[in-house]
Amino acid sequence: MGISDTDLLAEIQRLADDNSSPPSLSEMQNNGEYSTTTYFNRFGSWKGALERAGFNPRSNARRVEQEDLLQELRRLDQEVDGRPKVRDMDEIGEYSAATYRRQFGSWESALKAAGIKTESPRKITKDELVEELHRLADELGEQPSREQLDEYGRYSADSYRRRFGSWNRALTTAGFESTRVGKTARIREDELIAELQRLSERVGGEPTMKEMDEFGKHSPTTYSNRFGSWSKAVEIALSEENEG
């Protein structure tokens, strides 16, 4: 007779009672009655098994030992095609990829520590970095901070600093700006257009980039990045003003 879900979940509960906390994957491997592979096959992931057993893995989280992280990375290496990716760990691994970045400095460093062959690092393009900033901003509902980027992003904040020269320059290139209170927010296109129209009225004609620098609220670079060029932004703003 096969092992039932009830038996598997009861074993998790037994180990939790022994340890006074939800068991880790390595604790199940070393002290549990059933194979961890059985849990992955049945519940999709170790986190899924813990949740089915009535535990919240995140709320009961404690600092994970590096050896536990490396064991899980090696297990994942055997399960997926090719070397493990960040997405693999986040979707079917016991821990989050962000945990590996915090403890090893980067995903690549974690792979090396686990003895998993890594590829020669590919130079990340600026377009890829900008696209990731936009993706994360949409996911969070706000402009991500450097800390959020390190926690949830595919690339580290240092990657942006190295490629763009500074964090603020990366933000500007992606169409974000620092606010007066020190936070950052992606500026809506209608706000950019409205500011161009306001400046046009002030200077009595088509505003120049220099005039935006001196009298406007936003950087001319932001307009170039968002509309393709400064002249295109001016054309759109003034055509909308005339239509209105």
Results as ranks from 00 to 15, higher is better:
Arg162Tyr: 11
Gly165Met: 01
Ser219Thr: 10
Lys210Asn: 04
Phe176Glu: 05
Ser200Pro: 00
Asp158Ile: 13
Thr184Arg: 12
Gly204Arg: 09
Arg198Asp: 07
Leu192Asp: 01
Gln197Val: 13
Ser159Pro: 01
Gln148Ser: 11
Gly141Asp: 04
Thr173Tyr: 01
Met212Trp: 05
Met209Asn: 00
Glu151Ser: 04
Met209Pro: 00
Phe176Asn: 07
Arg180Phe: 06
Asp158Cys: 03
Glu206Asp: 10
Tyr152His: 14
Arg146Trp: 02
Ala170Leu: 07
Arg188Thr: 06
Glu211Ser: 08
Glu151Gly: 00
Gly153Asn: 05
Glu151Leu: 08
Ser166Trp: 09
Arg186Asp: 05
Asn168Asp: 15
Glu147Leu: 02
Gln143Val: 05
Gly141Ser: 04
Phe176Arg: 01
Tyr152Ala: 06
Glu142Ala: 08
Phe164Asp: 07
Arg163Leu: 11
Arg180Ile: 06
Val181Tyr: 03
Arg161Pro: 12
Ser166His: 07
Ala170Asn: 07
Gln143Phe: 11
Glu177Gln: 13
Glu177Pro: 02
Leu196Val: 09
Ala170Val: 12
Ala170Lys: 00
Asp158Ala: 12
Gln148Cys: 04
Val181Gly: 04
Glu206Thr: 14
Ile193Phe: 09
Gln143Cys: 15
Arg180Trp: 05
Val203Cys: 05
Gly165Glu: 08
Ile193Tyr: 04
His218Thr: 11
Tyr155Phe: 14
Ala185Trp: 02
Lys183Val: 01
Met209Glu: 13
Gly216Cys: 04
Leu140Asp: 01
Glu139Ser: 13
Gly153Thr: 03
Leu171Glu: 07
Glu206Tyr: 08
Asp150Tyr: 09
Ser166Tyr: 12
Gly205Ala: 15
Phe176Lys: 00
Ala185His: 11
Ala194Ser: 09
Thr208Asp: 06
Tyr223Gln: 01
Glu151His: 05
Gly205His: 14
Glu189Gln: 13
Phe164Asn: 02
Gly153Glu: 06
Ser219Gln: 10
Met212Val: 10
Thr222Glu: 03
Thr172Phe: 01
Ser219Gly: 11
Thr179Asn: 15
Tyr160Trp: 07
Arg169His: 14
Asp158Val: 12
Phe164Glu: 10
Arg180Thr: 13
Thr173Gln: 14
Asp138Glu: 09
Glu195Met: 06
Phe164Tyr: 06
Phe164Thr: 08
